[in-house]
Simulated assay, not measured.
Amino acid sequence: MANISMTEVSLMCHPQSDAGGIAAIDVTATLGQGGEFKLVYRVIGAIGALKIADPAIPDRVDGLWKNTCFELFVGNSEDKSYLEYNFAPSGQWAAYQFSGYRAEMAQLETEAPKISVVDGGQFLTVSVKLYVPDTERHVDLWVGISAVAATKSGKISYWALAHPAGSPDFHHNDCFALKLEARSGA
């Protein structure tokens, strides 16, 4: 039997953000023993109002958060280091590693995540499959799941499991609100 951890969560819109017609963003996160992470983001609301880049070659691209994108932060419970992944509905992605809060940012060497998108008019589903590095596979992880919803009219809303006081900041420790226990090989 596979040793997996599956969690369903709802993201909250930051109180200083205008949701821009988005009613909810729900996420299912699954972590398998081999480091396979599956995320399914479900956005409900005025999907046609969102600023979404056209489908593109699934390359690594910086600055995806300037448009609608989905994010995953993975913190190692044994130190202050963490990983940041960005997924755009266009298929483009980014991955970074940090030694501590916004410290020593570097590109994370990893294989490209698999991103698929279904636009259902009043809902948008973005499914992602990726593998966390070996160093993160056998320790407890603190996870932050978030999204940036940008509208064609220029409004931007910030969604996360939890938000720190003040301005939106997905890198803040308060956003790492989901604990996933280490997966054993059993």
Rank of each mutant, 00 (worst) to 15 (best):
M6R: 12
I156D: 02
R60H: 04
V143A: 13
K179C: 14
G120A: 14
G34S: 13
G154K: 04
D79E: 01
M12N: 02
I145L: 15
G21D: 02
V126G: 00
T135R: 12
P58H: 07
D134E: 12
E109L: 09
V128P: 10
K51S: 15
A24S: 15
Y41C: 07
A95Y: 09
V118H: 10
P164D: 03
T135D: 13
G48Q: 04
D59Q: 13
E8L: 05
S90F: 12
S17R: 05
R183W: 03
V61E: 12
G121C: 03
S153V: 09
S99E: 09
V128N: 07
M6D: 03
P168F: 11
A23E: 15
V118I: 11
E181F: 06
D62H: 04
A177G: 07
G32Y: 02
S146K: 01
D79R: 00
L124E: 00
G154E: 06
T30P: 00
A23L: 12
A2E: 08
N173M: 11
Q92L: 04
D79Y: 00
K152G: 02
A149Y: 09
N86R: 05
W93E: 06
A29F: 10
D174P: 10
Q16F: 02
P133T: 08
A23R: 14
E111K: 13
P89K: 11
F176P: 02
A103C: 13
D134V: 11
Q16P: 00
V128S: 07
T68D: 01
C69R: 03
A29T: 06
V126Q: 03
N3I: 04
K80A: 13
F176D: 03
V9Q: 13
Q92G: 02
T28K: 14
A56K: 10
K80P: 00
R137N: 11
Q107L: 11
S153H: 06
L124K: 00
V43C: 09
F170Q: 13
A103N: 13
V139C: 13
L39C: 08
V40K: 15
A103P: 00
S153L: 08
F98G: 02
G34R: 14
T110F: 04
D169C: 10
G20N: 07
K129G: 04
G154S: 07
C69S: 14
S184G: 15
M6G: 01
A23F: 01
G120M: 06
T135F: 03
E181M: 04
E111G: 12
M105Y: 01
